[in-house]
Each structure stands twice: as structure tokens, then as C-alpha cells.
Write a protein that binds this DNA or RNA. Structure first.
Lengths: 248, 248
DNA sequence: CGAGAGCCTTGATGCAGATCAAACGCGCGA
DNA sequence: TCGCGCGTTTGATCTGCATCAAGGCTCTCG
């Protein structure tokens, strides 16, 4: 299918909606040009709500920079974060009209958007587009279900370790580096946001982070800058058996 | 696309892999015949494991009868159910080799299977197949994320009410009836299975069911036969705002 | 430089649900 | 028919996390 056409290298294809973690070998030039025609950028300030649950969504897109969250809220104010949006993550529900959750910009956020209707029309003509989206959605489903285990069965300490290991992994894969030594990254969430992700209170989050620091599992400079001297140790703390690798 | 072809009524299409809750207007005869060629049935006994997490899966399929669960287990034995498989539910991960979770038959289970490789080849030729699968996967993702709210933020009583309302809804939609009066159905899960779904212990499940019974929210005959006199009341107990309807 | 606002940490106390333990009820096979 | 086993119920106690409360750190703005 790519025969006779120049292949676009991943880094030339930052905005591609079916890019996933910087892998996008399947794009060909025609599609990119077609996508270009329906593409635009939007930016949001920290704290701004990108879409309210139930609102009509007229675009799909990918996060270019910044951090966003998908959250659900009960009338009495209890909230649960159901997804974390990091650069390269896809946002949107092709074939669906409204959003199912609030999408909130946690930091300043830039999105590369594609008008939804023409995008869906492209999907009908381009089987590998919907297949790729299916794969991405299956990945999200796996992640959501893995998180169900975290929420349902893990202790507070294990929850924190699980979150740290996920963020560390995502951060490392974005840097495209295979870090041999300690992992270093900035935690993009407040204690409250972490609590909402983990089904805890912010006080418990704070206490458990202090405990992990005290026990040498992590080091902290300031409140955000994390270094993980031994990733295997962190995985053990998270209660994960397989090393999970840095592969994904 | 359906022009000039006889449309298959839902009830004639019980095994269709892209059937979803008995709606399958998009099938046309050619595809059904092609599917027929790669179709076979399998049955499993209660308690039998259909697929182990990580195992190679060489089919996709739909549940024809019986109840199954998707579960994840930690080395120390803690388990979390991440999905419930009721008749008409799709099982499988087109484009993926292995299963991400254990699939367990909770009751005797009959599946209508399709060989995976030819099915995937069909997907490449048939855009609406992968689009339909994408829609179904988005539905599963929504359900998983809704369950994250249940696991992370609801009390034990709310969790039980949430589970009952989901099973009641699914049961009603399978019967194709729009029940005006009280809902009556059989609970297809043991207390332990419910506990694994809800992130609780079986003792807590038992106590909360007793409490809901005592408060008149539900009635029980034996341990399994449930009647719900007032569905709205149950929804309130579940902490759900919108009535949610019987629509899905 | 000081005041205030956010965000975070830490301490004291309370409670929902886990854990440990015992007994019930029902179906089934001898 | 009895006795056994499995799933369930119920009680007593324990504990991890929530809740309530008080400061601390750091950045910004006057």
C-alpha cells in the first residue's frame, strides 16, 4: 500500500491523528494532504475545560503539548479521573456525537484537531484508518482495565507506585531514550489530581509519597521533580509481577 | 449499501460478530455467507477458563448463552473482574495476538467463534466491519471508565446498587421488553464474583445486599432471584444522576 | 520586603469496610 | 434419610484510609 510513495518519518508526522507513541509508518502522502486540509490547532489554558461531558464534539485530535485529563463527576462533587492525556494521545470518538466525560486541561495544552465530519468520511474510504483507530482504542481499553485493578484491589502505597511507574514509562517513551540509569521526570499532576486518579484523598497521596521517599523508592526535588533510582523496585512496590519493560 | 439486498432481521443474525445488543442492520448477505465459512461453536463448562491472560487467541466471537467474566489477578491472589460477558457480547481483539485478561466461564457458556486470521482479512476488505468494531470497542471503553468511577469513588452500598442496575438493564434489553412494572431477573453471579467485580469482600457484598433488601430497594427469592420494585429508587441508591433510561 | 494565595505536609481522630470466626441452609450423593 | 460441602449470612473486632485541623513552603503581586 505504501509502494511508490515516499514514507513519512515519524518525526515529520507529529500531528497525525493515528500516530501512536510516535509510530506512524502507515501514513501515505495523499492521506496526509487530505488531513492537512481539515486540520487546525487549538490551545487551552491550565484549568480550562476543553469539553464538558455530554457536549457535542465536532473534532477529533491529538495532544501536541501539555497535560489533560478525562474526568467523571457525581452530582455531590465526587470526581474520578478516568484517563490521562499526554502528548501524542488521541482525543475523540469517531462515530459518536458527544463526549462521555469532561476533558480538562491540567497544564496549558495544545491540540492538533481535525474536523470530525470529514475525518469520518475519510475513515469510510480508508480502511486502515479505522483499523488503526480500533487498535488505539483497544490499547485504551487495556489501560482502563488495568487501572480497574489498581482502583479495586491495590493499597494506597501500591496505587501511588503504579501511577509513578506509568508516568515514568510514558515520559521515557516520549523521550525515545532507553534510560539505563535512574529515571528522572516531572510529575505533571497536583496531589489533588493524583488523588482523583487513584480514588484516594490528597492527604493520603501526600503521606504515601512521603513514605516512598523515606524508604528510598523515589527521590524528590521540590514537589514535582522525581527521580527513580531503581525502576524494578518501584514495580515491586506497585505490586506488578512482570517487569512490564520500557517497551510500551 | 444495503440496496437491492434482503436485509437480515436481527433475530436471524444471532451469531453475527458485529451484532451489538441485537442490532445488526448493516449485515448484508455476502458477508454473512463469508462469515459462515469461518464460523464454529465452542462450549465451556461452568468454572472453566476459556483463555488465560497472555495466551494466544486464534478466534474472535460472541457469547451465545451463559455468563463469562474477564478478570485480572495479582501474584498474591487478589483478583479484579474487569468485564462481564453476557449473551451478545463480543470477545476478542482483532489485530492483537494474545488475550490481556483471563476469560472465565461463570456458568456453562456457548460461544460462536470466527477464525481470527480470515476474520481480520475480511476487516481489511470491509470498512464497515472495522468501523462497527470500533464503535463496539468505544462502548466497552465507556463502560470500563464508568466502572472506574464505581471502583474509585462509590461506597459499598452504591457499588451493589450500580451492579444490580447494570445487570437489570442488560437483562431487560435482552428480553427486548420495555418493562413498565417491577424488573425481575436472576443474578448470574455468586457473592464472591460480585465482590471481585466491585473491589469488595464477599462478606461486605452479602451485608449490603441484606441492607438493600431490608430497606425495600430490592426483593430476593432464594439467593439469586431478584425483583426491583422501583428502578428509579435503585438508580438513586447507585448515586447516578441521570435516569440512564432502559435504552442501552 | 511583606501579605496573601495555592499547594503541600503532618498530626489527631473516626469510621467504612476488611478480617476472623461461627453457624445457617440447601442441594446432592450415599 | 442422613451427612457433607459449598455458598451465604451474621457477628465481633481490627485497620487503612478518610476526615478534620493546623501549619509550612513558595511564588506572585503590591
Amino acid at each position: 500500500m505504501l509502494k511508490d510513495k515516499p514514507v513519512i518519518a515519524p518525526h515529520e508526522c507529529v500531528d497525525c491523528p493515528i500516530r501512536h507513541r510516535a509510530v506512524c509508518a502507515r501514513c501515505d502522502v495523499n492521506e496526509l494532504e487530505e488531513l492537512e486540509a481539515i486540520k487546525y490547532y487549538r490551545s487551552y489554558e491550565a484549568g480550562q475545560t476543553v469539553i464538558w461531558s455530554g457536549d457535542r464534539m465536532d473534532f477529533v485530535g491529538t495532544v501536541v503539548s501539555g497535560i489533560g485529563t478525562l474526568t467523571q463527576t457525581m452530582e455531590d462533587g465526587r470526581t474520578q479521573m478516568v484517563g490521562l492525556l499526554l502528548p501524542s494521545d488521541f482525543v475523540g470518538r469517531p462515530g459518536r456525537d458527544g463526549s462521555a466525560y469532561d476533558v480538562v486541561a491540567t497544564t496549558d495544552l495544545v491540540m492538533c484537531c481535525f474536523r470530525k465530519r470529514p475525518f469520518e468520511q475519510m475513515m469510510e474510504r480508508t480502511p486502515h484508518l479505522s483499523q488503526r483507530l480500533l487498535e488505539m482504542t483497544l490499547d485504551e481499553l487495556d489501560a482502563a482495565r488495568e487501572w480497574m485493578l489498581v482502583l479495586g484491589r491495590k493499597t494506597a502505597r501500591e496505587k501511588i507506585a503504579s501511577l509513578l511507574s506509568i508516568v515514568a514509562r510514558r515520559d521515557a517513551s516520549l523521550k525515545l531514550g532507553v534510560p539505563d540509569g535512574p529515571l528522572v521526570f516531572d510529575l505533571p499532576l497536583t496531589r489533588e489530581a493524583m488523588a482523583d486518579y487513584l480514588g484516594l484523598t490528597l492527604e493520603t497521596v501526600s503521606r504515601q509519597i512521603s513514605a516512598l521517599k523515606r524508604d528510598g523508592v523515589i527521590h524528590l526535588e521540590g514537589k514535582r521533580h522525581v527521580t527513580i533510582p531503581d525502576f524494578t523496585r518501584l514495580m515491586e512496590e506497585a505490586g506488578d509481577d512482570s517487569d512490564g519493560g520500557m517497551l510500551v
